[in-house]
């Protein structure tokens, strides 16, 4: 058994190296590349790039935009997912089988739908607002979110809710007081899923906004590859900073995220 453990550890460490190497390379670049468009790295560590990024008011604007979009997407998608997932898990009704479409729809290529969506957003007066970006993220994340939440509710014994109903709770009351708290890990899992997808998305903001002060972080990062060469120090420093919110979010709640994925996709 000992030998097998050693082998397992070797495997884990090897995969960790593969996972970490590009990230470590990025962080190293952010600390050694000269600020500006030069290429040669210095052996000296310095924080110039970080100081520069953090001194730029626009970076804070982009950060806020990204947070607004990601949290807005959660705030919109989560209630819809809870209601829809609960209906699918707890009720039988005609047409329920059509809910398979929820699994299929998000799998269709989002990039194909963007062109007509631009036209709709223009007609709705949402074009060139962050609401359009939120909406796109909601549309492409809700189906999977509904499905995950459904799996979660389905894993909670119905008897608990029934007991609550007998105690005088209405159906919605028992959803609110009993099922949602019980399903909290699943809801966190869904939130993390939506947050990370929205945080990293470049295409929707690219397609639906045009004003520079509405840019989100992935767009801002690409700007370091500019007409005057690439500012590798600035790029990697900004990318490292941009990685912090989703990484923190994930670290704080990763236990529930894993549990949520287990329950949400197990059935």
């Amino acid at each position: 058994m000992r030998g097998r453990d050693v082998l397992a550890w070797v495997g884990l460490v090897l995969i960790a190296v593969v996972v970490f190497f590009p990230i470590a390379w990025g962080i190293k670049t952010s600390l050694t590349a000269p600020l500006g468009t030069g290429r040669l790295s210095t052996p000296l560590l310095h924080l110039e790039s970080y100081r520069y990024i953090l001194s730029q008011p626009l970076f804070v604007v982009y950060l806020k935009n990204s947070l607004f979009v990601s949290l807005g997407a959660i705030a919109t998608a989560l209630p819809m997912a809870v209601m829809g997932g609960y209906a699918l898990a707890r009720f039988d009704f005609p047409g329920k089988r059509l809910s398979v479409l929820l699994l299929v729809l998000p799998l269709l290529p989002a990039i194909a739908v963007l062109v007509p969506l631009i036209v709709y957003m223009q007609r709705l007066g949402l074009y060139n607002t962050l609401y359009a970006v939120i909406l796109a993220n909601v549309v492409f994340n809700t189906p999977f979110a509904v499905w995950m939440v459904r799996g979660f509710f389905a894993s909670i014994p119905y008897e608990i809710e029934e007991a609550a109903t007998m105690d005088g709770c209405s159906r919605l009351g028992s959803l609110w007081r009993i099922s949602i708290p019980l399903a909290a890990p699943g809801l966190i899992a869904v939130s993390i899923f939506v947050f990370i997808n929205a945080w990293n998305n470049y295409l929707y903001a690219f397609a639906f906004t045009t004003s520079p002060d509405l840019a989100v972080l992935p767009q801002a990062l690409l700007r370091f590859l500019g007409a005057w060469g690439t500012n590798y120090g600035g790029l990697t420093a900004a990318a490292t900073l941009a990685l912090l919110p989703p990484a923190l979010f994930f670290l704080l709640f990763q236990k529930w995220f894993v549990m949520g994925m287990v329950a949400g996709t197990g059935k």
């Binding site: 390379w25 990370i196 945080w199 990293n200 470049y202 990062l221 690409l222 990318a239 994930f250």
Partner: peptide, 10 residues
């Protein structure tokens, strides 16, 4: 967790 545009450039 990393944005695709960032990992591509890395």
């Amino acid at each position: 967790i990393i944005a695709p545009v960032v990992s591509s450039i890395l």
